[in-house]
């Protein structure tokens, strides 16, 4: 079939995938069409409801990059505490890693 990429165990066909996705989107659109459309844009109906409080400034509600995945990095604190200092920005360290790499690979290749 046109578009079949043989991947070893099976195949991948993006055209089939697109047809399936398009069908799914069509159903989603049909369901959306059944929804309530009688609201007025730009009125109280479309404003976020924050328990009666005023909406804060836009710049305050945007979730910045630094707010994301802090839990992930916190959970792996031990890992990051060791990994980040290795990226010291010092060229001498970079070249030391090069030398270490050369030695380790040479020993591995000679021994095994």
């Amino acid at each position: 079939m046109i578009g079949d990429l043989i991947t070893g165990y099976g195949f991948w066909n993006p055209l089939i995938w697109i047809i399936v996705m398009a069908t799914g989107l069509l159903f989603a659109w049909l369901i959306w069409r059944c929804g309530e459309s009688g609201y007025d844009k730009g009125t109280e109906q479309t404003k976020p409801y924050l328990s009666g409080n005023d909406e804060p400034p836009k710049s305050d509600v945007h979730i910045r990059g630094g707010n994301m995945y802090w839990g992930f990095t916190h959970a792996l604190k031990g890992y990051y505490d060791k990994l980040i200092p290795l990226h010291s920005g010092v060229v001498n360290d970079y070249l030391t890693w090069f030398v270490i790499g050369v030695i380790v690979i040479f020993v591995v290749v000679m021994v095994i």
Partner: peptide
């Protein structure tokens, strides 16, 4: 073997492979 190891590490560094990647970022 010495030549091969140096090829691997030096060209790996050019390609940005760990642990020779530090200058890349």
């Amino acid at each position: 073997i010495v030549a091969l190891v140096l090829f691997i590490t030096a060209l790996g560094m050019k390609a940005g492979a760990v642990p020779f990647h530090f200058a890349t970022p």
